[in-house]
Design a protein around this nucleic acid. Sequence first.
DNA 1: ATGTAATAGTTGGAATTGTAACTAACAAGC
DNA 2: GCTTGTTAGTTACAATTCCAACTATTACAT
Lengths: 145, 145
Amino acid sequence: MVKSDDFDVRQFLPYLLNQAAEASSLEFQKVYKDKYGMLRNEWRVLFHLGIYGQMTASGIGARSQMHKTKISRAVQRLAERRYLTRTRAEVDRRVEYLTLTSAGQRVYQDLKATAAEYDTALTDGMSRQEAALLRTMLERLAARP
Amino acid sequence: MVKSDDFDVRQFLPYLLNQAAEASSLEFQKVYKDKYGMLRNEWRVLFHLGIYGQMTASGIGARSQMHKTKISRAVQRLAERRYLTRTRAEVDRRVEYLTLTSAGQRVYQDLKATAAEYDTALTDGMSRQEAALLRTMLERLAARP
DNA sequence: ATGTAATAGTTGGAATTGTAACTAACAAGC
DNA sequence: GCTTGTTAGTTACAATTCCAACTATTACAT
């Protein structure tokens, strides 16, 4: 008898994580998608700029774990929609600084407020400690190399 | 001052869930991908058949929340690789019963064993209670409509 | 029995993502 | 100055996924 005999794949953490992630993303996705025509990667880039202010694409990559091609395409679309502007760095002209326009800021504020509400709804059945513990464990799992 | 002013989007549950899901899926994905040339949807279909035995495509859909086109295509590829067989139901000829072949069973057993090990590694830093609580909360989040 | 609706599963084409190769700019060693 | 290597970001093309329409079969109501 091997040890996997009593293992239930339905309890496999990556599976549960994916299911929870998909289910919980669905409702919020409607907001940035239907209201602003954005994709998930664009929302991610947007909120990084909202939080940190001016950043480079690779800076976003370092913080978000997003692949650079995803970032590149998200930035393009956000620039087309005039939610951000790009400026070449004088000192190193490979680098581009990204900044939210005021339209971008407004979208960010709106989505952030919606996210806050939705987050409250999601953690509704949990105690404060449970919610905090959940976030900590998720952060640890996400940080895993 | 609105309530989202002190909300940190980096702590937004859907975001954390997605990050944790992506990170934790990556390593295991290598196994079913590199070793068996399978995609995530195929692994999902496979393990549902491994757990429940003979099933229909829509039965898998009901349990897994996968969209029917994903299931249809996953089933096709698994059938091509001879990991499962399809049989028309006599009573209702729209329906097809899916069953793992013995090759499919072997793959399932192997992946399940690997998953068991990997799951142990993932929960390494957690206490039993923490791990159990995590799974419970993820199940609740996944079940949310 | 016949028209209408529902269900199981498939398919086509557009949209998105993945992967690898690419350009452009800088850096370092010789 | 030149080669070689590295980094920032883009692009091309293949692989996947999404969405909507489709076929085939059964169910149900008149």
